[in-house]
Design a protein around this nucleic acid. Structure first.
Length: 525
DNA sequence: ATGGTGCCACA
DNA sequence: TGTGGCAC
């Protein structure tokens, strides 16, 4: 049985900012994004980025601020009404857009610590990772077993250290032996001195008391999986301590036998806490859980399930007969769902600490929407410049270079969405109709904000990434957009542009810039 | 006046 | 290859 963990940095962006400005420590802090239209001024990471009057939208909330009811996506000034002493930190701005590089770098440092001790580590986002600590847990148990059997714990530790990762056969054997003798289980893995902030999901008592009680259960109550899970919890606690000590960041974690439960567990007790999810706790945990709380069921699919099946909790979903489930979502989804509803999830922790793509983009809301190719070119240049910087760093650090360039645009069609007008390309008939039936109907024949919005459509086009150089990438991206504009005809608004570099291939360090300079100068256009 | 990213499944 | 969904 695997032992997996989900590690989640607590209100990460605010932690990064507090570390950069320690006077904020222990105070309510939010991080906001605020991009005045057309303003290309940069706000460097090292600038004073405290903006008490900013009304940007909040993307991270410190736990002190959460106590006052401040939430993500709130406007900063609305939050300040809830919490007058709130510190508002603005995300750095470069190339006319928010630049979250300082958080990426901090996240990479965390990933580095989490993956330094042999755990398989999958970067799930800038502030989250999945770990497979099965090997480490087995190793810990084997060492404990050896110590218990031999009496000399030092000798046991030394032996296990010698066995190292290559000794997994013997270690597994030791674990199995231990499991075969339940009487030895209790004393086998001593409860760590400090279990502050530890929890066992669905325990009779909350917090450390519950953990202690769980740990102190009669030896006959333990099974191998629980033993492994307990050992995994020790491994994860050590990793979290390393993150705290080496980097100064607090994080929370869930430890379980599947990704889905580990993820659920990490959110049960925050901040700076960790939660074990033993198999025995799963029915009690999932039964009353609202469907949208499960990863993957937070959106339309979950909504479809709730309305289509008349269920609202995971327990109710688990009780739906398979045929009924199949009728609604198909064979494959039904089988997957039924297992998911029991906390069963075979998804592996993929050994991947680096992003598979690097992208940047910007939205242009309302009046800032782009209507001409000149503006598009200007922003593509900005985005490509940032992209090149990030690709340069990525190549230097990871000896790889992307081979594919994708440009995506979010667009609004200009065609009027009046009742008798042609359908807006990219918009479903239902949406167009809904828009036409609304207040905008009176303005049929003219483009109004309402029917502009009805025509939103995303378009993406890819091309080989010739050279990771801003001018080249911007030019190639512009070509794709020009072609789209030509095909599309007159009358469009672009409300978002994104460029992405992907399909990385190995590349030697350092040569990129020199090669591109000596090959052919990019100043052809 | 909910931004910027990144992953994945599907067709 | 492009679209859409999900998550934070």
């Amino acid at each position: 049985m695997r032992v997996l963990a989900h590690v989640d940095l607590d209100a990460f962006y605010t932690q990064v900012e507090v570390q950069r400005n320690p006077s904020l420590k222990g105070t309510p802090v939010v991080v906001v994004q605020y991009n005045p239209y057309g303003d290309l001024r940069t706000v460097k990471p090292s600038d004073n980025r405290l903006f008490p009057d900013s009304n940007g939208s909040i993307i991270a909330v410190s736990y002190e601020a959460r106590k006052h009811g401040v939430k993500r996506n709130m406007m900063a000034q609305a939050a300040k009404k809830l919490c007058p002493e709130l510190s508002i930190v603005q995300v750095p701005v470069a190339h006319g857009k928010a630049d979250i590089q300082i958080y990426r770098d901090a996240g990479a440092a965390v990933i580095s610590v989490l993956s330094s001790d042999g755990a398989i580590c999958e970067r799930a986002s800038v502030d989250e990772a999945y770990l497979d600590v099965t090997a480490g847990a087995q190793q810990l148990l084997a060492a404990a077993a050896a110590a218990a059997a031999g009496g000399g714990d030092a000798a046991g530790d030394a032996l296990q250290a010698q066995l190292g990762a290559g000794g997994s056969q013997q270690q597994q054997q030791a674990v199995d032996d231990a499991g075969a003798q339940p009487a030895a289980v209790g004393p086998l893995l001593p409860l760590p001195e400090s279990i502050e902030g530890w929890h066992v999901a669905d325990a009779a008592e909350p917090g450390a008391a519950g953990v202690a009680a769980w740990w102190a259960r009669p030896a006959a109550c333990w099974n191998n999986d629980e033993l492994l899970l307990a050992a995994g919890a020790v491994v994860v606690a050590r990793l979290r301590a390393s993150v705290a000590q080496q980097l100064g960041y607090s994080c929370s974690a869930g430890i379980a036998h599947s990704k889905i439960l580990a993820k659920l567990g990490s959110g049960l007790n925050k901040p700076a806490q960790q939660t074990l999810v033993p198999a025995a706790a799963v029915p009690g945990l999932l039964g009353p859980l609202p469907l949208p709380k499960l990863r993957q069921l937070g959106g339309k699919f979950g909504e479809e399930l709730m309305t289509g099946l008349g269920v609202s909790t995971v327990g109710e979903l688990a009780a739906v007969p398979l045929p009924r489930l199949e009728a609604l979502v198909g064979l494959e989804n039904a089988a997957w769902l039924q297992r998911l509803a029991q906390g069963k999830d075979d998804e592996e922790v993929k050994p991947r600490t680096l992003p598979k793509s690097i992208s940047c983009g910007k939205t242009f809301r309302g009046a800032s929407a782009l209507t001409g190719l000149t503006a598009v070119h200007g922003w593509l240049s900005q985005l490509a410049t940032e992209l090149q910087e990030r690709l340069d760093n990525d190549r230097r650090q990871h000896q790889r270079t992307p081979s594919q360039l994708t440009v995506s645009i979010d667009t609004l069609a200009a065609a009027a969405a009046g009742p008798d007008s042609a359908a807006v390309p990219g918009a479903s008939a239902a949406i167009v109709q809904a828009a036409a039936a609304g207040p905008a109907a009176a303005a049929a024949g003219r483009a109004t904000p309402q029917n502009w919005r009805a025509g939103v459509a995303a378009v993406s086009r890819s091309t080989p990434l010739r050279r990771p150089v801003a001018e080249v990438m911007a030019a190639d991206a512009l070509k794709l957009v020009k072609k789209w504009a030509r095909d599309r005809g007159q009358g469009w608004k672009i409300i978002g542009i994104f460029i992405s570099a992907s399909n990385f291939v190995a590349a030697p360090t350092g040569a990129s810039t020199l090669d591109s300079d000596s090959c052919s100068t990019a100043s052809s256009s």
